[in-house]
Each structure stands twice: as C-alpha cells, then as structure tokens.
C-alpha cells in the first residue's frame, strides 16, 4: 500500500510541563485539502512546525513523501512548501530578491529560476511591489510574499499556517481560489480559525483542542453533527406566538426548542422559534403542515442546515454546557 504524502503518527510535543500537542495521528493524501481548526493555543502551529522540521517532536513520527522528517529533514523539506505563522520574511530584501534567494536554495538556476519566480509572482499577484523592500509592504502583500515562497517550487506538499490572515475579502477570495486550483495534485494542510474558509476550500477538516484531535471528517460530516442539522426556524407574529409555542414544542420528533421573544421589538412582537429534532428526524414537512392547518401568520420558515461554528464550539469548549453536538 503506498504511503500517503503526509503521514503522522502519535505526534507529541511538550514544552517543560506544558503539553502542546498530545499524540495526534492523521494522514493527508494527494488531492486533499485538510483544514486544521482549533482555538488559539490548541497546538495547530506547533503541529505544523513539527511537520516542517522546525521543531523536533517529543514523540511520534512524521513522514512527508516517504521521507522521515526526523531522520532526513532536508529530503522532506525539499518536498514541502511552508508558510509559517505570521508569514515571516527578510524585511530588508525586496520580494524579488527574497524569491530569488528561495529559488536558489531550492536548486533552481538561470532561466528556470526566473521562470519559477515569475510564475509564483503571477499566481500571488505581487508584480506591483516586486522591487519594494518587504518591510514597507502592507500585511496583505507580506502574506502573499510568504505564499509565493511556499509555492515557488511547486511542491507536492503544502503546509500553510493561516494563509488568509490579514487579507481583505477580495484577497481572501483570491488566495482560496489559488489553493483550490492547486488542490488536485497536492496534499495541502491549512490552519485557520475562519470557519467559512473550511467550507470554501477544504475537502476535510480536523478540529484540534488542547493538543488532541476532537473531530475529523468532511466539512459536511462535521456540520451534520451540529444540532442545527435539520432544525427548523419559524418566525410567527404576536397573535399566534402563544399557540405556536405550545403546539410546536409538542410536535413529535422535536427534541428542544429555542424561543426568542420579539415582544417590544420594532418588528411588532411575535417570536422566533427554532425547533431541534431528535436524532434522525426531519421536521420541516411536519412544521409546514402544522402552520397551514392552524392558519398562522408566519413571517419566515427556514429549514436549517448544520453549522460548523456550532460544532467547533461544542468540541472545543468542554464545559460550555450546551452539549448539542457532542456525540
């Protein structure tokens, strides 16, 4: 069986008494974009630093394209592009000098070097600041310089720590499109705490909390673990609110109801009622039938879908006490 491009086993890192990463195992294969989610300090960056050979693990192993990062870091690093946290770069250099340095280190020479740099510049749209020192660039351009040096040698494995941090919405869109365009022949890991990004570019997501993996699946699968999966939200006006509360709550298959009263609200009162189903139940047909039967004046009726954000909160805040998605 061929080894996946990134293969991680029992990876752990302790800093003195602090367990930053407590034994994570996963693998990423060609064509996958793995979203690495977790609150600040969960161990995302530490894990990435170990994959790229910047930090030596306390335990466990990392293989990249078959190279053991601990034994042959140079071999593994040749197969990887890495955007480090905060996109560090030599501030006194211009993007052009910096990218040429990286290209030379990556073994490019002459015309090939020029071509590699030109392609990276083009893909990250750096042309207009190419000869300006990196220190003087805006945050967005600095980030793109970091991305350019990571993709310069068209590596089979790409590790990016918060690639869209500090970018404006247009730039974010461009970077996501860039990642998506490279996805099919690479194994990519991106860390983020922007959850929409996971939906936008990732084929798989891992949620990490306190150094351990707490959820692993496609964005759809993870979202389905949210209590909003197949939930229904109805907004009724004030005359019907009281009756609707009772009748909807009593509906078979309803597990719980979130009741937001709009009394005193400028919309003229009423209530927004969100009905959470029991596992496996679909409520939308039942609710809409009930609405028609009773003749309620309904302002909106929405069939909800799972919310990644909800799952993220449930997975990563152990004592929040709203255990909707915990399975």
């Amino acid at each position: 069986m061929p080894q996946p491009l990134i293969d991680i086993n029992g990876l752990a890192k302790t800093f003195g008494p602090i367990k930053a990463v407590a034994g994570v195992s996963f693998s990423v294969d060609k064509g996958e974009v793995l979203g690495f989610l977790g609150p600040n300090g969960a161990g995302k960056s530490t894990t990435m630093k170990m994959i790229t050979g910047y930090l030596a693990p306390s335990a466990g192993s990392v293989f990249v394209s078959g190279y053991d990062v601990a034994r042959d870091p140079i071999g593994a690093q040749g197969e990887m592009g890495y955007l480090a946290e905060g996109a560090p770069a030599y501030g006194e250099m211009t993007p052009h000098q910096f990218l040429n340095f990286v290209a030379a280190v990556r073994g490019f020479k002459g015309v090939e070097k020029e071509r590699a740099v030109a392609i990276a510049v083009d893909r990250t749209q750096l042309a207009q600041v190419l000869h300006q020192s990196i220190d003087t660039l805006s945050k967005g351009f600095k980030r793109r310089v970091g991305i350019a040096q990571a993709i310069l040698h068209d590596p089979p494995v790409l590790i990016m720590d918060e690639p869209t941090d500090g970018l404006d919405p247009n730039q974010k869109f461009a970077v996501r499109r860039l990642i998506a365009s490279m996805a099919k022949d690479k194994a990519i890991i991106i860390s983020t705490h922007i959850l929409e990004e996971v939906d936008a570019v990732c084929s798989r997501a891992i949620i990490i909390d306190r150094g351990a993996i707490v959820a692993d699946g496609t964005p759809g699968e993870l979202a389905a673990r949210s209590r909003y999966q197949d939930a229904v939200t109805v907004e009724v006006n004030s005359t019907d609110a009281q009756g609707a509360r009772k009748a909807l709550k009593a509906l078979p298959g309803v597990n719980d109801m979130l009741d937001i009263s709009l009394d005193g609200d400028m919309r003229g009162g009423g209530a927004v009622l969100t009905l959470f189903p029991e596992p496996g139940q679909r409520l939308i047909e039942k609710v809409s039938a009930l609405v028609t039967e009773r003749g309620w004046k309904v302002r909106s009726l929405v069939a909800e879908s799972g919310r990644l954000e909800d799952v993220f909160r449930a997975c990563t805040t152990a004592d929040a006490g709203n255990g909707g998605a915990g399975q």
């Binding site: 630093k49 790229t52 050979g53 910047y54 870091p73 140079i74 071999g75 690093q77 040749g78 990887m80 890495y82 480090a84 946290e85 905060g86 560090p88 770069a89 030599y90 501030g91 990286v102 280190v105 990556r106 040096q149």
Partner: peptide, 14 residues
Amino acid sequence: KSGTLEILLTLPIP
C-alpha cells in the same frame, strides 16, 4: 527575533 529563523530552518539547507 523576526521569525525568519523558521524560514531558514525549514528550507532544505543543512
């Protein structure tokens, strides 16, 4: 200080 050590040590340079 500037974090570029992370670049230097993750490029394939002994």
